[in-house]
């Protein structure tokens, strides 16, 4: 081992010769007087550092990192829940709007139907009444017409009879006159 270290020393001499300014013989790194003390104090201080970090410092850091991670995850989760809730609310709102719109549509449709039906009924009733009135009027006209026609024949027979009486000076058989008048009327009408 000792020879090995000496070898190492020789190597470092050549390695650092390039830096020039140093004379190799006085390189403090090769002074073996303090090798043992440096290794001992290295071991002591590193052990202290290791124990401090391992026991106290690193658990603290990892703890806080974990806590933050949990917090971030928790926040994300909460945000997600809130988002989902908002979405559900929006959906419910949409649904309510759609429902009320449908209900309104239905009401409107119903009202329209009812009104249409009522109008139709009114219309039909009116038509009926009018038709009845027309029919009645027509009946009355027909009656009047018939009556008038009947009177007309009588008048015509009478006129014809009296005209014939005046012209011929004799009484004409009313039945014959009636026949003639009937024939003429038939022709004219």
């Amino acid at each position: 081992m000792r020879g090995f270290i000496r070898l190492l020393g020789g190597l470092t001499l050549t390695a650092t010769a390039g830096t020039g300014a140093a004379s190799a013989a006085t390189l403090p790194q090769l002074d073996r007087e303090f090798y043992a003390s440096q290794v001992i104090w290295l071991a002591i201080s590193f052990l202290i550092l290791y124990v401090i970090l391992w026991r106290f410092v690193l658990p603290r850091i990892s703890h806080i990192l974990e806590e933050r991670q949990d917090r971030i995850e928790g926040n994300l989760e909460r945000a997600e829940t809130i988002r989902r809730e908002a979405q559900a609310t929006a959906e419910a709102y949409e649904k309510a709007v759609a429902e009320s719109r449908a209900a309104a549509q239905a009401v409107i449709a119903k009202a329209r139907d009812r009104m249409t039906a009522e109008a139709a009924a009114h219309h039909a009733k009116l038509g009926q009444r009018l038709a009845a009135e027309i029919a009645e009027a027509e009946g009355r006209i027909q009656e009047a017409k018939n009556e008038a026609m009947a009177h007309l024949r009588d008048v015509a027979v009478e006129v014809a009879s009296s005209a014939a009486e005046r012209l011929a000076g004799e009484r004409v058989d009313p039945r014959a006159v009636g026949k003639v008048v009937d024939r003429v009327l038939k022709e004219r009408s």
Binding site: Y50, L53, W54, R55, V57, L58, P59, R60, I61, S62, H63, L65, E66, R68, Q69, I72
Partner: peptide
């Protein structure tokens, strides 16, 4: 990030050197 690991890295679990 270490947090993205499937397992956590507690600093104090190293029992031997």
């Amino acid at each position: 990030e270490p947090e993205e690991q499937d397992d956590d890295w507690p600093g104090g679990t190293g029992s031997d050197r």
